[in-house]
Amino acid sequence: MNAGNLSGAATAVLLAIFIAGWIWAWSGRRRDDFDAAARLPLEDEPKERRQ
């Protein structure tokens, strides 16, 4: 296997990992977690400190 083939294989693997991460981030199961994270900067205090 020469350097060109190795470089192409590494690119394909990294592209597959990127696409898998993109699908994971945009899946419907993650929506509640990401919505909660998006509201964090707007909250006055973290929920643990409220009493």
Rank of each mutant, 00 (worst) to 15 (best):
W24D: 01
Q51N: 09
A25G: 07
A37G: 03
A3M: 10
D35V: 12
Q51H: 11
A16S: 07
E48P: 00
P41A: 01
E48S: 13
V13R: 02
W24L: 09
I19T: 03
R50V: 04
L15H: 07
I17G: 03
E48Q: 06
R30S: 02
I17L: 09
G4W: 00
A36E: 00
A20W: 02
N5S: 13
A20S: 03
D32I: 08
I23L: 10
A37S: 06
R39S: 06
A3K: 14
R39P: 00
N5L: 08
N5F: 04
M1A: 08
A3I: 08
M1V: 11
A16C: 03
T11I: 09
W24I: 07
E43N: 07
D33P: 00
E48V: 14
N2R: 08
A36N: 08
G8V: 10
R31N: 14
A20D: 02
A38P: 00
W26R: 09
A38R: 11
W24N: 02
R49H: 08
W26C: 10
E43H: 02
Q51Y: 13
S27W: 02
A12V: 06
F18M: 09
A16E: 09
R29H: 05
L42C: 02
E48T: 12
D33W: 08
A38V: 04
A37T: 10
R31D: 15
W24H: 03
L6I: 13
D35C: 09
N2D: 11
R49Q: 11
L6K: 10
M1K: 05
E45T: 06
F18N: 05
S27D: 02
